[in-house]
Structure formats: C-alpha cells, structure tokens
Amino acid sequence: MDGGQRVLAYSVVNQGLVNEEAAQNSLAEAIVRAGISREDISTIVTTGYGRDLVKFGNRSITEITCHAAGAHHLRPEIRTIVDVGGQDSKVIALDDRGRVATFRMNDKCAAGTGRFLEVMARALGVELADFGRIALQSQNPAPVSSFCAVFAESEVVSLAAKGYPKIDIIGGIHQAIARRLSSMVRAVGLREPVAMTGGVAKNEGAVRALEQALGVEIVLHPEPQIVGALGAALFALRSSAASNGAAVR
C-alpha cells in the first residue's frame, strides 16, 4: 500500500503449517508484483495466526482488528463482518467509526470453518474449488446435523449409504455451516450491511446459504482473503505517517 492508500500488490500463499518462510515468500512475491524494492517498504504490520512468528514485521495486530479496519476502509457502512478462514470463523460487529464493538469466534474445534468444508469435500471426492458451485445446484439439501468435521464425515457416509444424491449432501453441508455462522451473527447482533471475508467467502454456495439463513444480502470484496491484510496495511500506513510527523487518519 502506498501513501495514498492504494494497494500496489498482494500475494496469497498456502502456507500449510504456520511458518515465517511462507510469509517471506509472500512478501517477496508482492514486492516483485508491485515493482518496488524491500527498502521502499517503511512499515510492516503482521496479522493472523503466526503474526508474532513473523520477525520482519514492525508490529503485530490481531486479525479481528485488521478485518474491521480493512472492511471499513472498503465500505464504511459495513456493520457486521463474517470472516471464515481455514482455521477459524469470527463475527465482528463494527461501530460507526469502523472500530470493533464486539466479536465472537468459533470454539476450539473446526466447526464452522474452511477446514470443515475441506474435510467434507475430501470425504465426497470433490475438488474444493467446485464445492460451492455444486451446492448451488441442490434442490433438496440433505439433513446434515453435525458441526464437528469428524462427526459430519461419518454422517455424510451414512447419508450416502441411505441413497442421498451427492449434490444434496453437499447442499446440506453448506446449510450446516451457514446455521453455525448465523447463530454467531445473531449472538453478536445482526446489523446490516453484512460483509463476508476470508477464503470461504469465495465459496458461492456458502455465501448463498448464509444469505438464506440470515435473510440478508452479503457484501463481498472481489478478493476477500486480503481484507485482513488490507487492514494491517492501513495500520502500517498510520504508524508510518505518525513516525514521519504526518497527520494520522
């Protein structure tokens, strides 16, 4: 991000286990794409799991605060963010200044996260990239009651054994995750507009199921995986401006 809050480049890498090398590779790729050198970067704010592991950052801020800042920057009217990533899901309520008013996260297990969808896709032999699109074709979603990835996997096997079509099982899986997320939203307090961020926001089946569960239209950014990073960049810009004596927005 440059001083005018323009995003010059970004890079998303699948890091597997949290590790600094992946973060370094991502930074190197973003530098190349932006056509700048490392020395041109004045401040780096790290966020997400492993934010403290990344030693080349100047400061770390949680993804909750960063997603709030990023989403507010993109659409200041956003009042609720549903962020669903691979490891966790969270619902963040924003005040009218874009600050975190309150938040709720999933519990320790993978229920309601991208990992849940990954495990289900693998169990059904479907590519994750196709999972959401297939869910949209379901006219009669199967009843999937489990939120736990392990229990749901055995439930899915039982549904298949009972003769449910794969399309409807996939539809039911997306409804299950939507139920989980909508409970978290309602516990925080549903306030529109609602934005969805994180990798699962790229899954159109999950987005549609959540829209139906909440009864609202969900606002999406074309690249929902970088909203937290965008927030981190905004904080970096403020830090940089403050240290240069410039006005801090």
Binding site: I61, T62, I64, V100, T102, K108
Partner: peptide, 24 residues
C-alpha cells in the same frame, strides 16, 4: 480443551478494542 493461540488472539483483540476506545 484449551488452544493457547486461539485464546491469545481473543484476549489480544479484546485489548485492542479497549485501547482503541481509550484512545478515542
């Protein structure tokens, strides 16, 4: 039943929320 990194993120986010309010 406890995941330290998840717990730390929640507390840290709570701290950030409180500090932002205090700054306001």
């Amino acid at each position: 039943f406890f995941a330290p990194e998840q717990a730390r993120t929640r507390v840290e986010a709570l701290v950030e929320t409180v500090l932002a309010r205090k700054a306001d």
